[in-house]
């Protein structure tokens, strides 16, 4: 298993993709941290809160600042996951992979381990940017950059979040054989479909109370425990550990279905 994981990691780090994504992770982390550290420390008037300005405890504010780039981060993780299997089919390197390791379950297992590791590494890269920039700006604006040990939990969980999104990408990469289509569809779902669905569901009581919190990005935001909207129509987020299980379930189902398909398919 270790040789297979090493091979997967070398696949990822032997093309130019890795440093481009690394740079994007760092900049997104730092950039969003600066913006959120300013916006979330603005004086919140009751009218603005009623209109939807997100507010929270000092802990939630710190969490939001440090994980502000998470939407960019999860999108990039999704891309990594899709490419880790999609480019193998696109460039037919999957043939060589399965010749070297005919036990396909082992190959897929190695991809899962490698993607969790890669997600965690990029999570660290993103946090280096966001904590350095965010803590500086928060201090300058008189807010407490580390109000609670809970912040550390959110930071640690953000590493897991990126790994889980990479696994979701792995599943998508197998289920949508055309790599470009897979990338466009999944990015479209994350940036357009899910936000629209979340908005639409707030008009339906059952959907607001029971469905929205289960959507992958709502779960992601609940895991890292950021600020929330206080409007009457805002959905109540689940606790961080239930959300983590929800996101893990998405990853397990998609990566699992993809793996089963890979085990049986003819490689032509």
């Amino acid at each position: 298993m270790i040789p297979a994981v090493r091979s997967e990691l070398r696949k990822f780090f032997s093309t130019r993709l890795w440093w481009g994504i690394g740079a994007a992770m760092f900049l997104a982390g730092a950039g969003f941290a600066v913006i959120l550290a300013i916006v979330l420390t603005l004086e919140a008037s009751p009218e603005a809160v009623a209109a939807g300005q997100p507010t929270g405890s000092p802990t939630q504010v710190a969490n939001s600042v440090y994980t502000g780039g998470i939407t960019i981060g999860l999108t990039l993780s999704l891309v990594i996951g899709i490419l880790q299997i999609g480019s193998e089919y696109r460039h037919k390197t999957i043939t060589g992979t399965f010749l070297a390791i005919p036990r396909r379950g082992r190959v897929m297992g190695a991809k899962v381990v490698a993607l969790l590791l890669i997600g965690a590494v990029y999570g660290v890269v993103s946090l280096l940017g966001s904590v350095a920039a965010g803590a500086t700006v928060l201090s300058l604006r008189g807010a407490d950059p580390f109000p609670d040990a809970e912040v550390l939990r959110a930071l640690a969980l953000s590493l897991l979040v990126l790994g889980l999104w990479a696994l979701i990408g792995l599943g998508i990469g197998i289920l949508i054989p055309n790599q470009v289509a897979g990338l466009l569809i999944s990015i479209g779902v994350v940036w357009i479909v899910e936000p629209l669905a979340t908005f639409a569901l707030t008009f339906w009581e059952f959907g607001r109370d029971h469905v929205v919190a289960l959507l992958p990005q709502s779960a992601t935001n609940a895991i890292v425990g950021g600020v929330t909207q206080q409007t009457p129509t805002a959905a109540e987020p689940l606790s961080w550990w239930v959300s983590a299980l929800v996101l893990a379930a998405y990853a397990a189902v998609l990566a699992g279905v993809g793996t089963v398909r890979t085990l049986r398919s003819d490689i032509g």
Binding site: P3, R6, R10, K11, S14, H91, K92, T93, T95, A100
Partner: peptide, 24 residues
């Protein structure tokens, strides 16, 4: 099997090292 089974962005040497890793 086919002369096109390479990732265009990976060097030939790294292509072999990916396979070599998998087979120790």
């Amino acid at each position: 099997l086919e002369a096109t089974n390479f990732h265009p962005g990976r060097s030939g040497r790294d292509h072999l090292r990916v396979l070599a890793d998998a087979a120790s």
